[in-house]
Design a binder for these strands. Structure first.
Length: 421
RNA sequence: GUGGGCGUAGCUCAAUUGGUCAGAGCACCUGGUUGUGGCCCAGGAGGCUGGGGGUUCAAGUCCCCUCGCUCACCCCA
């Protein structure tokens, strides 16, 4: 290489090269297909938002807000670290709640968090995000999880669903106090991280990975045993809904959420195939958030986000490779007259809807045939000098190697007829 | 922010205790078939071994620094 490339992509930012994009499109296509069957509509929001939107929804003291956001120097504008807050802002700002009492929305796009990259975690990453705004019915919770399960099933990847309830502003503080008491009496047996968490984020002690901590946590008080009447009923009904739809799940009383706005139902689709990153999708209910952001009073909501990069990794290791795309025709011109005749013909066929490839580098026929093969062409049209004198070319079927003479100068009908078969 | 591992051709990786060690496979190009793809055969191009400094008669190999990648912790999709 003559030119030394000094400029590289930023740490944690990645190109999605053509070989990978098929996988991304497959995910995208599957998502749209599934979400539309559940009557979800797509919405797209800007990537930049007011910093305050995230500070208020995600939580001022969360790591995301405190140290992971890409915020511009004036401190008022931030590249979104997640989609829910933006979507709620759009829902409120556009008065969507007034147009339809319950909105079912999904979006897909890049999110940004300034973290140290590792497997399945980038600084620019992509999420598929679905939200149901305006319903507090537990059947919605279960339906959303069922939709996630169906999505992963149709992708052909193996994940399992875990469920928990975090309680609500009414019952969580009580549980929190009980938990802190429990932790405090065993502080000496916990790791240094957990000693710190005891003050900053006691719930996080529950999912510490250190064996010694896990030992202590085993007998820790469970949220599920300290739910208020409303949360208890809701939680039970969510499970009934899942059972009604035959969705497999397991309860995980240690499952915690990182974002402040969650309440009641929380769930994750997890895998053991992504190293430290077990969550492929995660979400939950956030009943007070819409109102807090200036939306209508008493408007509940629930949603979850799927990490697209993580799904891509799973597809790459769990599923056989997708067939590469096929093109209809490759035109191999021999000599300038053949190449020019093919040049014209290619455009004509493309206008009629066919995918056509050809080479403009004056390569040998053998080389062009190789390219046709590599491009996965159904047919190759060879336009040589001797046939061209009669206005003919040789159309070759790349699978069975049959070849026939066809008109190339007067009309493309014969070629089109072949392609239509 | 903290800790571990690794940087050799476009990709995946070799190179005995420092001593022809700059290699292989895949991919690419050309030819075998003056005009016919996949298989095969022959040949070709492609590297200041991430960068800098040091030790040595001799460094891809050892030491230091630096940059980058990666995995993990924290945190999280």
């Amino acid at each position: 290489m003559e030119i030394i490339l000094k400029i590289k992509a930023l740490k944690g930012f990645k190109d999605i090269v053509p070989d990978e994009i098929e996988l991304w499109n497959f995910i995208d296509k599957t998502a749209r297909s599934v979400f539309e069957r559940f009557n979800f509509s797509e919405i797209r929001m800007p990537i930049l938002e007011a910093t305050e939107l995230f500070a208020r929804s995600i939580g001022e003291t969360t790591d995301i807000v405190e140290k992971e956001m890409y915020t511009f120097p004036d401190k008022k504008i931030t590249m979104r670290p997640e989609a829910t807050a933006s979507m709620l802002r759009a829902y409120i700002e556009n008065g969507l709640y007034a147009k339809k009492p319950v909105q079912r929305l999904f979006t897909i796009g890049p999110m940004f968090r300034h973290e140290r990259p590792q497997k399945g975690r980038l600084r620019q990453f992509h999420q598929l995000d679905v939200e149901v705004l305006g319903s507090e019915n537990s059947l919605v919770d279960a339906e959303l999880m069922a939709m996630g399960a169906l999505f992963f099933n149709e992708l052909g990847i193996d994940v399992s669903l875990e469920l928990n309830s975090l309680g609500c502003p009414e019952c969580r503080p009580g549980y929190r106090k009980i938990l802190i008491d429990y932790i405090t009496t065993r502080l000496d047996n916990l790791c240094s991280d957990c000693k710190r968490r005891a003050h900053t984020n006691p719930l996080r002690v529950l999912d510490c990975k250190v064996p010694g901590c896990r030992e202590q946590i085993k007998s820790a008080p469970s949220v599920q045993d300290h739910l208020c009447q409303g949360c208890r009923t809701h939680f039970d009904n969510v499970q009934k809904g899942l059972e009604m739809l035959n969705i497999e799940y397991s309860l995980n009383k240690f499952m915690v959420r990182g974002l402040d706005y969650y309440c009641k139902t929380t769930f994750e689709f997890i895998t053991g195939d992504l190293g430290a990153q077990s969550a492929v999708a995660a979400g939950g209910r956030y009943d007070g958030l819409i109102e807090e952001l200036g939306g209508p009073k008493n408007s509940p909501g629930i949603g979850f986000a799927m990490g697209v990069e993580r799904i891509v990794l799973l597809l790459q290791q769990q599923k056989s490779v997708l067939e590469s795309a096929e093109i209809d025709l490759y035109i191999a011109g021999i000599g300038e007259p053949g190449a020019l005749s093919g040049y014209r013909l290619a455009h004509q066929l493309r206008k009629e809807g066919w995918s056509v490839a050809m080479d403009h580098e004056g390569k040998s026929l053998k080389s062009q045939m190789k390219q046709a093969d590599k491009a996965n062409a159904r047919y190759t049209l060879i336009i040589g000098e001797s046939e061209l004198e009669k206005g003919k070319g040789l159309l070759r079927d790349m699978k069975n190697r049959d070849a026939e003479q066809v008109d190339v100068e007067l009309s493309a009908t014969a070629i089109v007829n072949r392609l239509q078969q």
